[in-house]
Amino acid sequence: MARPSFLSMRDESAVLRLSIATTLLIATGGVLFGLFSGSFSIIFDGVYSLVDASMSALALAVVRLITSHAVDVDLPRKWRERFTMGFWHLEPMVLALNGTLLVAVTVYALINAITSLLGGGHALHFGPALVYAVMTVSVCAAMALLEVRANRRIRSDFLRLDIKSWIMSAGITAALLIAFGAGYAIEGTAWASYTPYIDPAALAFVCVVIMPIPLAEIRQALLDMLLVAPADLKAQVDAIAVKFVERYAFQYHRAYVAKVGRSREIELYFVVPPEMPAKRLAEWDAIRDEIGRAIGGDEAHRWLTIMFTCDPEWAE
């Protein structure tokens, strides 16, 4: 099979590689334009992008590990023996780390913005700042659109987070574009004394607006790491298990579910009446296959255990 090209949007790793390269380009431009124009908000935008790119690179490494284990290729035997339950648990860890770093950068920038406002602001060259804002908004919007289209098929949590990052970056830069445009418009007018406050005010506004986004990602990652059962998955598994309890005259079932990154971990216990006629192992396996097909989902990222017992203690 041919390897996906760098610009391919059909593979999760290829999409992340393109995103990382684009983010690094924007981040470098942000820092350079920020220093040249004297804009702390543009420098923040660049630093924010650098953090995002570094986390995307880490995410790419995790994606390769998860995929290699799921499809049983390109993974050293020693690693496979040490991580017998896969690498899905790394995904929420990376998402939590990403969110935490972005929150830290945002809080630091907000403190600097408030300090600058209280100190009377600072001068800003609006021309270069406007050029940067227009270019960055265009690139961010294009990347978000491309990834949305790609993730309709791929359905990746990493790409979902990356899409949010691109939308967030576009929103940040659009706000800066409006602020810089207003500052450029009032230069040389009676309102010119307010221009030193535009950059720190824009930075403070952007920080307040984007803060909830990484916080939401941290919350979801913590739910995954704590193995909190998703209500929709639990309801789906229970509904399917009840049908099999009725069909095969079992006594009852117990379901234990969790979502860890892209994986779904499901344990199903069916309590069988002691007087039920014995079945051959092949018959029990056929019932397991039937239940697995009913649950569905991506089998490469599903950990499914189905047990039949006459002893209720095994199910509790």
Rank of each mutant, 00 (worst) to 15 (best):
S13V: 01
E187H: 08
G188C: 07
C310D: 10
Y194A: 02
E275G: 07
S156A: 07
V237A: 11
L223F: 10
A241K: 03
R152T: 06
S54M: 12
H125L: 13
G181N: 10
S68Y: 11
E290Q: 12
Q220E: 15
P196G: 05
P274M: 09
E265N: 09
V137E: 02
S169I: 01
L65N: 03
K164E: 07
L58S: 06
A150V: 05
A235R: 08
V62Y: 01
F205R: 01
S37H: 02
L268Y: 03
T22H: 03
C310H: 12
L145T: 08
P277E: 14
K279N: 05
S49G: 15
A57E: 09
I43D: 02
M211H: 01
W166L: 04
A202V: 14
Y252Q: 01
M143V: 02
A109V: 07
L159H: 04
R219Q: 09
S19V: 00
V139M: 05
I163C: 08
S37G: 04
F180E: 07
L233S: 03
L110Q: 06
A175P: 00
G188S: 11
A2C: 08
L97D: 08
I213W: 04
L215D: 02
D11I: 05
S56Q: 13
P312K: 13
L177S: 07
D238E: 15
F83E: 08
W303F: 14
G121K: 02
A192Y: 06
R153G: 00
V62R: 05
R302L: 14
V47N: 04
A229S: 14
I178L: 15
V237L: 12
G46E: 02
I26A: 12
A235C: 00
A21M: 10
W88Q: 11
I163E: 07
V107Q: 07
K243I: 06
M55D: 00
L176D: 07
L215K: 05
M85A: 12
